[in-house]
Computed example of a mutant assay.
Amino acid sequence: MESTITTAFNDLIDKLQGWLSAIIQNIPNLILAIIVMAAAFFMARYIRKFVLKLVKKRVPQESVANIIAKISAVVIVVAGLFLALGILNLSKMLTSLLAGAGVAGLAIGLALQGTLSNTFAGIVISFRKRIQIGNWVETNGYSGEVIDVNLKEFVLKEADNNIVVIPNKMILENPLKNYSLTTRMRVFLECGVGYESDLEEVEKLTKEVIAKTFDQVERPDDVEFYYTEFGDSSINYLCRFWIDAESMLEKLKSKTKAIIEIKKAYDKAGINIPFPIRTLQFDNELNFDESVLSNGYSNN
């Protein structure tokens, strides 16, 4: 029994001596690995601040700028960790870490597929110069001012002050119309006049009213005017002209102003804007047989 204990104790001492020798031999590598990790940590802090300052110049959304800066810091720390493990000759552990990170990343990616897609879509949208906060856009059946773009959603404020929250991935997957990219918008105005109207006079008067109402229209010939059809109660036309505007709200205000001024001019000139009516016309006189009527009453 004593010999067994002695043998086990000697084996333990030999094992500890072997570990001690290995530690002593690897002290330079251990110190170098610690220095690499410390350098990576401090470098990550400065790189995070630098990336945050750089991204904020391009991306107004603070949440998106912070996540990009944090990702850059994590990349630096992970690179330092892998380099330190390589210095310590722990290649097997490095391989195991990479394999584990790959499996964990796959599992997390499948579990958070929708969230991650919105996150990356938010980052992509934030770097798009043609989509900025304050722009008036139309997308996914909604129209309004962009008030926020974060890592999850795209937020619009409609003309009636309603807030619309749209997932970021839907913005990338669907068409988007940005009215703020240009400083000019075209107003379309449809109307109709009575069949008794002088069509040439109507065209001339409409163009003159538009030119007087809007400073952007320098002369009546700049207004496009086309008769489109013979309607049920009127001869219909389409009028188009350009205005200086960057939002649908300004366009609606201009269209309202044009309608008011055209109605005033038509009333003054005696031009009729008819509404749908139905006329019942009886051209034939009805002949009643008195004998039939009398027989009918007598039978009753």
Rank of each mutant, 00 (worst) to 15 (best):
N168G: 00
K49Q: 10
A245R: 00
S234E: 13
T206E: 14
V223H: 00
A104I: 11
F127Y: 04
K257M: 15
A84C: 02
R219Q: 12
T279G: 02
M37R: 08
P28E: 04
R128K: 10
N295Y: 01
D148M: 08
V164M: 01
A107S: 13
Y226E: 14
K264Y: 12
S233F: 14
Y297F: 14
V74F: 11
G109Y: 14
L94N: 15
V187W: 04
S197K: 05
D222A: 06
C191K: 10
E62A: 12
S21I: 07
E190I: 05
S3H: 11
A38C: 05
T183D: 10
S21E: 13
F9P: 08
Q25K: 15
S247T: 10
R48P: 01
V36Q: 05
I123Q: 01
N299L: 15
Q216G: 04
I210W: 03
G141D: 01
L30E: 04
A211W: 03
D232Y: 11
L94G: 14
S233N: 10
I13Q: 14
L83P: 05
G144D: 03
E2R: 06
F214K: 00
N284Y: 13
Q113D: 09
G192P: 01
V217T: 11
G144V: 03
E190Q: 08
L32F: 09
R278E: 15
V137K: 08
I243A: 02
S233P: 03
C191L: 12
L32S: 14
L112S: 14
E158S: 11
Q281T: 07
R45K: 11
V103Y: 02
G296M: 09
A107C: 15
K255H: 12
P167C: 00
N29R: 09
A44H: 00
V146Q: 05
K92R: 15
E190F: 05
E201V: 07
I277Q: 10
V146A: 05
V223D: 00
L30W: 04
G86Y: 08
L151W: 02
K152R: 11
T7E: 07
E203Q: 14
L106I: 11
N118M: 03
G194I: 06
N300A: 14
V146Y: 05
G102F: 11
S91P: 13
I108D: 08
S3G: 15
D215N: 07
R45A: 11
S254N: 15
V78L: 12
L252P: 07
I24A: 12
L90N: 06
V164H: 00
S91H: 15
M170F: 06
L110W: 13
L85H: 05
S21L: 13
F230P: 01
D198H: 02
M43A: 10
I131R: 03
K49M: 15
G102Q: 02
K212V: 03
E201K: 13
P60S: 14
L156D: 04
F241S: 09
F241L: 07
L12V: 13
S197A: 12
G296W: 08
I87S: 04
G134K: 11
L52N: 08
I147E: 06
A121Q: 01
V74P: 04
F120E: 06
I235A: 07
V74S: 13
I262Q: 06
I108M: 09
S234Y: 07
E261R: 07
N135P: 04
K204A: 10
I34Q: 05
G122F: 02
I125A: 05
I133A: 04
T6I: 08
